[in-house]
Amino acid sequence: MIRRIEQNLAEITGFIILVSVFYLVVVNERWTVQTILLPESLLAFNTIFLSILIEAIPFVLIGVFIAGLIQVFVTEEHIKKLIPKNRIMAVGMSCMLGALFPACECGIVPIVRKLVYKGVPIFAGVGFLLTGPLINPIVIASTYMAFGQDLRIALIRMGLGLLIALVIAVSISFLFKGNQLKKTATLLEPEQSTKRFPLLLRIRAMLIHSVDEFFDVAKYLIIGAMLAALVQTYVSTNYLIGLGEGMMFSTAIMMGLAYLLSLCSEADAFIGASFRHVFPETSILGFLIYGPMLDLKNTIMMLAVFKLRFVLVLMIIITISVFGVLTFVHPWI
């Protein structure tokens, strides 16, 4: 009898947890803490914090699933075969792949980490990381809608974004060798082919990896969402706008704003559009291009995956490239 219980212990525990959470859901009664205890701004912070999380989680889940898939089904030989030997070709290909792949800037970090771990060169990984969230059908559609159904801004955003991503990826290829990954416990497993295991076990392994990956990523996502919500609740955008005028300055301000607000690239066009009466179009483009490439939320996530020095250099290169290219093309916009 005891042996039988022991055998089914996992199922029994799972069942008990399931029933208790189900009960919570059905009873539907929240033990809400009295409002008097908490200041209004803290409640607003909490709402924004949760909304960023709820918005990001589906995309992060897609990201960890794909990371799990790569971990179990993609081997180093596949990667070697697919990535072109030529550096420029490799960068071009990764940027194109990123452009076809709809992702959000937090969901893509675990995917890139797994790809680089499996032997994709770091510069190709960066190309994918930058274009994935910036260039995809959903972002084009939302930018088109946000700017009064005007394709011009959407096209400039995509075109310039692709150009800047290429510049960044090429400069990374000259600066860094090696995979630049942090050595973490999950990545220290002996690399062996998983082909000898049956398919069902491999699918199970993929899902288990997804679970671990989720917990790996979730803590950084939560910290990032918390910081972004703090900025949104306690920093006034009007104050930032009041800091100064002039094209260079306003572009810098919009890029800073994009970094701090950490909006999802699918929705940031609407916020960007609301600044059109204050800033020139170049500055708005700074907001639209810089935001998906780099923000508070994904910096924290990248710091968890890559070496500190690499992340810092990457941040500087992204900032300089976006700013430089925009200043250069400003007369034509």
């Binding site: 809400t32 409640l43 607003a44 909490n46 709402t47 969402a225 949104q232 609740t233 955008t237 204050v278």
Partner: peptide
Amino acid sequence: PLVTGLLFPYKELGAAEAVKRG
């Protein structure tokens, strides 16, 4: 987020938050 999400009341944004935004 689970603790704050399950325990705290949710607040709709109002005038105070609006001033902070564009």
